[in-house]
Write a protein that binds this DNA or RNA. Structure first.
Lengths: 249, 249
DNA sequence: AGTTATATATCGACG
DNA sequence: CGTCGATGTATAACT
């Protein structure tokens, strides 16, 4: 059996399942009333309540309340998760060094614990990312503007990487920043920063490529002499980078 | 009992526990071999493997692999999670409308399922956030520069919100952007955008306040005539906004 | 519902 | 190990 469950475990069982399970590469989940302390980049306290704890062998710890996508407290992978008894209660502690931080969960009442020896070699295959949008633009620069020619992809400058450095039909340089999602003011900022590298050249153009942009962003671009180009849909298959086996649904 | 566990559940039991549990406000966790499809903002496929599923009554669905902080697939709160039989397998589907997206998990082999009627009224109390840093600066502007006077907090402009609008000892205006973490190029961008609103006024200063900044960011600031002010530690208690009951540890 | 900015963001790539 | 930029970012605040 890949999963072993214990109902209403005592502190000793809990400590054993957590410590041994994690050491042997299993995921350990607990249902328990608990209180939580965090100290690190900020600090905080969560009073007693029923939560779901997930401990992974890579040092990940998640504390989930009944609502919401994000764990209320957590530790990312890379640290250590351990369990010890303290005053008859079990205390689960997750730590890491960089940055130095700690999550401490004191279990008041454990309803259940499950050791799960999960075997998973699969990797997630994703399609429609910004990388694919780049590949599509590189293959179809005309979609942005007639006569546009890509000169360089990911050009490094002292202010960061420019998505595309191109030339237009008249041979003038064009700095291009590409976003997969609706353009924001920060994206405008980013483009402006890159264009500012060439401010001694009046001929240089700046182009923000995205599926959409708010009126405020469009105005900011206009005010700075920059351009917005809408690119909503791009043929994901045409890039040749997709190989996910998606069944039809 | 707050938690009910079923070992090696059949598809009917699974469907019942998921549907009934979620409907009645419980968290449902599953250990199962499964494959996952996502379609929405992007699309993707995850081949068969052992994962932990977490379903919450608010429509949250999490699919966790054995490693890593982030779920490999998920649905945020606000949608619906449902379970149905298909070809003898159980299929868990999470959907939402805005944006329109769907996660579909086909269970190949379920090792265990737990219904958890969690009761949690506590709220997380946090200290050391950027809000508190703002409160500290508002109470102690001298920490940034002698004679500095805060004129306005969160000033709205056509290009977004300015953290602080202030005047220096000489009465010149100062635009201040505050970051709780090390300053990045994006933060520099943001400050520069706000300062650009006053570019007709040569006297206006721009100040980026953060615990640290990379050399690249400092150079970018210098090149644009903007200033960096280091504010690493601020007395969290002095702001009067903390009321978390942190036990000493 | 749309926009803006924050986050204990996390994560990956690159130097 | 630091820095930088993407993320199906999620989330809160405000319009």
């Amino acid at each position: 059996m890949a999963a072993e469950h214990y109902d209403s475990p005592d502190a000793e069982t809990l400590a054993n399942v957590v410590e041994t399970g994690l050491h042997e590469g299993a995921i350990v989940t607990l249902q328990a009333e608990c209180e939580v302390e965090y100290d690190g980049r900020t600090s905080g306290y969560l009073g007693p309540g029923d939560r779901l704890l997930v401990c992974k062998p890579d040092g990940t710890l998640l504390v989930h309340q009944p609502d919401g996508h994000k764990p209320v407290n957590w530790m990312p992978a890379g640290g250590t998760v351990s369990a010890r008894e303290s005053d008859g209660d079990l205390v689960v502690v997750a730590r890491r060094v960089n940055p130095r931080e700690r999550v401490e969960v004191r279990l008041i009442d454990a309803y259940g614990v499950t050791r799960y020896d999960a075997d998973d070699a699969a990797e997630y295959e994703e399609s429609g990312t910004e990388d694919e949008m780049h590949a599509y633009i590189e293959a179809h620069p005309d979609e942005l503007e007639d006569g546009l020619r890509i000169v360089e992809h990911e050009r490094e400058t002292k202010y960061g990487f420019i998505d595309f450095f191109a030339t237009d039909a008249d041979g003038n340089p064009v700095v291009i920043e590409v976003k997969r999602i609706q353009a924001t003011l920060n994206h405008f900022d980013q483009l402006k920063r890159y264009v500012s590298l060439y401010e001694d050249n009046d001929e240089v153009r700046g182009m923000l490529v995205a599926p959409s942009a708010s009126e405020r962003v469009r105005r900011a671009l206009r005010d700075s002499g920059l351009e917005f180009v809408e690119l909503a849909e791009f043929d994901r298959d045409a890039t040749g980078t997709t190989d996910a086996k998606l069944s039809d649904f």
